[in-house]
Amino acid sequence: MKSDDDITQRRPMDMPLARVPVGDVHVIAERCKECGYCIEYCPTQVLVYTKEMNTKGYHYPIVAEGKETSCVHCKYCDLICPELAIYTTSSDDDRDSDG
């Protein structure tokens, strides 16, 4: 798979100034019904199903291994969740876009 550098060498002039937001994912496991919308439509594929189940027997989402800093706090998982079972908050330690 090609990395971003292979696709194009052109970069916006303000690239060093641009900061990608970082988010923390919070899951309210007991509300989840395993519809999978948050997992499917996360733009950075942060979430996976857990192996554990909640009390109703659904596999709720959890942050994938190695993706702990990948959430960009776009809030799409929050907005599309029919159960209000997931939300993101902004992390204080924002990183540089190339960091």
Binding site: V27, A29, E30, R31, Y58, Y87
Partner: peptide, 29 residues
Amino acid sequence: TQTDSSFSVVHPIDHLMRADRLPHILCAG
């Protein structure tokens, strides 16, 4: 990653929902 199996974690929009009735009865999906 905070995954809380209790109801102590509340969603930021819960004040506009009758959160005590969640999870709702609608089907998964």
